[in-house]
Simulated assay, not measured.
Amino acid sequence: MSFTLATWNINSVRLREPIVCKLMAEEGPDVLCLQECKSPVDKIPMEAFRELGYHHMIARGQKGYNGVAILSKLPIEEAGSEDFANLGHARHIAGRLENGVTIHNFYVPAGGDKPDREINEKFGQKLDYLTEMRDFFAANKPEKSILVGDLNIAPREDDVWDHKKLLKIVSHTPIEVDHLTQVMQAGDWVDVTRQDIPEGLLYSWWSYRARDWDAADKGRRLDHVWATPDISGAAHSSRVLRDARGWEKPSDHAPVFATFDL
């Protein structure tokens, strides 16, 4: 069985329904994981998605904030959700495909503006969330699993437009990278995107603040596709659909793809 998966922080699934449909129609991933849906589950526009072949959905939603959803052409059953750090936020949903693959879809807290938990509660919440992710996967060793989502951390030097300038900027600070590394190690996760694209600058997010995001190209790779070692070798064809950042009324994130032959 071969299937293609995409992950995308959509920044409001209802506001950006047209570009979700565009992605479905033009790229047709078998599984589409969305973050920051900003919608109650019953308000997600499934009618339009079903017309494009996405008959299955599992999701956690909130009005106006957060929210994660897995839309699938393939049958998928819910496999749990966790409220790490007890934030009461809709930030995680897990689903299991008929071939036994479990997909974890995460929206990790952004962490606010100041990388100091003493003065910025949101940064502390982000670190606590990552710590509880680590502990969860250490206690529940994943097998035949994929983890995707907006993890809100660009871990490598070539995952940001300027490593030195961003060392004190939330999303690339050493403490965040260390916390994310611990999550990876706890689950023995493999970074599928960088397995396929091991070298070079690679981004999935460009700020709305840039007047010309494409020319300035001050991006960060915040969106990730990981897999457990038992299936990571079956992954290939990873890519970032950069063009989607330039679509009409875009998200500030671009979709990230990977294909698995299992």
Rank of each mutant, 00 (worst) to 15 (best):
A138K: 14
A138P: 13
A139W: 03
N140I: 07
N140M: 07
N140C: 07
K141F: 14
P142V: 08
E143V: 14
I146Y: 02
V148Q: 05
G149N: 02
A154N: 03
P155Y: 08
R156H: 10
R156M: 06
E157T: 01
E157W: 04
D158G: 01
V160D: 05
D162Y: 00
D162E: 01
H163S: 11
H163L: 03
K164D: 14
K165A: 15
L166A: 04
L167M: 14
L167N: 06
L167E: 11
H172Y: 05
H172A: 08
E176I: 07
H179Q: 12
H179K: 13
H179R: 13
Q182L: 00
V183Y: 00
M184D: 03
M184C: 15
A186Y: 08
A186T: 01
D188E: 15
D188C: 11
D188V: 01
D188S: 15
W189E: 08
V190L: 04
V192L: 03
R194I: 02
Q195I: 09
Q195F: 06
I197F: 09
I197H: 01
P198R: 10
E199A: 11
G200R: 07
L202M: 13
S204A: 13
W206C: 07
W206I: 02
S207Q: 07
S207P: 06
R211T: 14
D212F: 13
D212H: 13
D212A: 13
W213S: 11
A215S: 13
A215K: 14
D217L: 12
G219H: 05
G219M: 04
R221Q: 11
D223M: 05
A227H: 01
T228N: 11
P229Q: 12
I231D: 01
S232N: 11
S232R: 08
A234W: 10
A235S: 13
H236A: 15
S237W: 00
S238R: 07
V240E: 04
L241V: 09
R245N: 04
W247T: 04
W247L: 02
E248K: 15
K249I: 14
K249G: 09
P250G: 05
S251L: 06
